[in-house]
Amino acid sequence: MTATLVIERAGPLTTIQDAGRFGYLAHGISASGPMDGSAYRRAGLLAGSGEAAGVEFSMLGVELTVAEGEAVMGWDGGTFEVSINGRTQSWPGSALLAAGDRLSISAGTGGNYGYLRFGGDIDVPVVIGSRATSMRARIGGLEGRVLRAGDRLAIVADRLSAHHPAKHHAALGPDPRAGARATVAAIRDRGPRVRPEGSAAFGVTLGDAAAGQQKTDGPIRFIWGLHAEVFSAELREKFVTSPFRISSMMDRMGVRLRDEARVFAEERILSLVSDPVVVGDIQILGDGTPIVLGRDHQPTGGYPRIGTIISADLDRFFQLRPNAELVFAPVGLDHAQALLRSAIL
């Protein structure tokens, strides 16, 4: 199954991502990878992507047409509107699209990031071990940049699925290769086939995938940070009892928070000798603005870090839209790691 896709419309920050480029912080390169990793994995299960790269899009969505060939596509993450050739589809969902089909994803009711994954890999070079686009280092993905209208992406058979033909059999019927022409014909006649929710897709049911979803509300849990002691006990108490708001200044590098309760407004923030930083670090800038570092974070930082959001809550945090209110709740390391174990799909 191969296809050529043409991007017809791309919202800001539409990028190619894979699981990430880990291990290169000492070289000045943060890992990148999907902002909502669990949604990325769920979309991959829907499309039978294995380890293959996918497309991350932001609030305004993405639109593409299939110029040649055919490809299974799966989508998930947040709540977007999706249609194929004008027919509304369910979110999340998946379908086999063939030449001439148009997939349109537009703004929905929740979330900042959605994912489109394919029954094959995106034919872009592996750069430093990954296809993930690093907006900061300007490497990976398509020429190290965001996708835009007119870009063409080739979907090619990925090596992993080639070794596991059974995965495709489960999805496309007993003999997908023999049935391919008939399938394409069926799509032309009746529109793309969309598997109803809950049906078996690539040996994984949607029910299983949904079980991996994180809870959508409740406090954002964190572990007290490297420099928590820089702040007074009184301030730390205010930090965990006051609401914050997501500001509109957010991208893959970081999310600025609005501190309406003025928790940090009177603080005299000193800069410190820089240390490596990690995704989820809550830095307090010199003017008292809290900023949570994203997947394309700077590799090092010299602002005090009051805490670090736990891995199990990062995906949910990055999906909070501008103006959403949140509170922070401290948890211990053992608890955070137990949550991480139970959250893995």
Binding site: F22, L25, A26, S274, Q337
Partner: peptide
């Protein structure tokens, strides 16, 4: 330990909490 990052006065160590106990 899956990543070692020396910096000016510190060293960051990343590990996989699914495999190792802190």
């Amino acid at each position: 330990i899956v990543e070692i990052v020396p910096s000016l006065v510190s060293v960051l160590l990343r590990y996989d909490p699914l495999i190792s106990r802190h």
